[in-house]
Nucleic acid binder design. Structure first.
Length: 178
DNA sequence: ACCATGATCCGCT
DNA sequence: GCGGATCATGGTT
């Protein structure tokens, strides 16, 4: 859940990746720096980083103070505030009234870690947000049958590919890749 | 379906 | 100076 003024955005997390201690793919692997310092704080905060010159990605810090572990939010199914998300995404596809195209735009809203951040207006300023506050929070939803939870190698990394630490909901259209 | 490229910043083994 | 937990576009099999 994301509150922006009077507006409420909500989505269901459908794809995540774990980044852990002693994990060469993790930003925390080489120790605490200015960029990754939030990763080392007490679990329950949001770690937002900037990458590729233009994108933000958001993680849930999960370790004890000083450890440096987090879970990257890779994809979300939009539930509430879809019009605002569209505005935030300012989709490159022009708004036409074709139904198939509407569907494409809807999927394209949040089917990737940087797309999610853009749709939910999460950037630099949200780094370090306490997830027990009212700005950004995570609440329980319908339990997901364990049958439907699949795992794979993480995406976009070079080392640690043997670790199957990407988890996603089988068949969910917002998952970024099979 | 895959592959290459451009956009564009920041942090640093 | 280089490359990255990405995305969109445009080209080729």
């Amino acid at each position: 859940m994301r509150r922006i003024g009077n507006h409420l955005l909500a989505g269901k997390i459908v794809e995540v990746e774990a980044y852990r201690i002693n994990d060469p793919a993790s930003h925390s692997f080489h120790g605490k720096t200015g960029r990754n310092s939030i990763m080392f704080c007490e679990g329950g905060h949001l770690y937002v980083y900037f990458t590729y010159g233009m994108h933000f990605c958001a993680n849930i810090v999960t370790g004890k103070e000083g450890i440096g572990e987090a879970v990257l939010i890779r994809a979300v199914e939009p539930l509430t505030g879809i019009e605002i998300m569209k505005k935030n995404r300012r989709s490159p596809i022009k708004s036409l009234n074709l139904k198939s195209l509407d569907h494409k735009i809807l999927i394209n809203l949040t089917n990737g870690p940087a797309k999610f951040c853009q749709a939910f207006d999460i950037s630099r300023e949200e780094n370090g947000t306490d997830l027990l506050g009212s700005e950004i929070s995570i609440v329980d939803g319908e339990p997901i049958p364990s049958k439907l939870i699949k795992r794979s190698s993480r995406i976009g990394i070079h080392s640690g590919l043997e670790k199957k630490w990407r988890f996603f909901i089988k068949g969910n259209p917002w998952v970024s890749r099979k």
